[in-house]
Amino acid sequence: MSTIARVKSLPVEGLKKALWVASIAAAVLLVAGPVYMLFKYSISDSTSINTGGAPIPLWPYHPTFRCFTYLFSDSQFFGVITNSFVIAACTVGMSMLLGVPAAYVLGRFRVPGRRLLLLGLISVRLFPDIASVIPITEFFIRFKLQNTYTGVILAHTLLALPYVIFIGMSAFEAIPDDLEQQARVMGANGFSVFFRILLPLSIPGLVAAAIYTFLLSWDEFIFAYFILGLGKISTLTLFLKQKLAFSPPQNLLAAISVLLSLPVIVFSLMLQKYMTAGITTGSVK
């Protein structure tokens, strides 16, 4: 703000400021409003939903955690959460097992044609999920992987692997060459250098990749839906979709939604740095 402008026209400055505060408020409302609504519904009692024609209150008449206690006492729901957890954990394991060695090579060696290689590695992800899910489901049907944990885990690994490779690669790249050379001069072979120097130093990045993978699998819907259908093995997202079809109480839907998104929101905010870096370099969808 130039002093000349301020002296010349104070009312204009005031108007500008008001406009500016209003736009922040609008932006915050735009983002936080829906999140608040979700939370509000999840703690609503039934009279705050079935109001009999009166407008739905902006804060429940009788806030309650009943929906959550109900869900946790429901054995079907418990099974669903376990499924989601197991599938996500296995996806993490498999993605890291495949992705970390690849990230190591891409991050520490000058591989000829690296850019082309990277493009080749991510190109399967350039297909829309809804387009690649049909071939993969058909393939899994042929090899009896439909309706199996293995099938979903394989599919989720496919989705997560490019991210693991990218995040891991930049973690390995960030380690100064001096450290690796120093270890070599001190007599360490490639194996020791990797396990005693490079791996410990890239742990923060690799943990981020692992959490990212976990979340990706945890809230994945399309592949789970095609591969598992609404069959025997259900995940959280499939459970929510299933409930939606039978128009259940809205507070229950919201409670499931909260449980589905809470870990994602918490960890995503923790991993902000990695998420934003990924987006701005265009490596994240």
């Binding site: 100064p176 001096d178 450290l179 070599r184 001069v185 130093l201």
Partner: peptide, 19 residues
């Protein structure tokens, strides 16, 4: 190979292992 030479080196950056 580097690791089989019985030499020691101190780098300009010291290259201390930060972890």
């Amino acid at each position: 190979p580097v690791q089989q030479r019985n030499l020691a080196m101190v780098f300009q950056s010291y290259a201390l292992f930060p972890h």
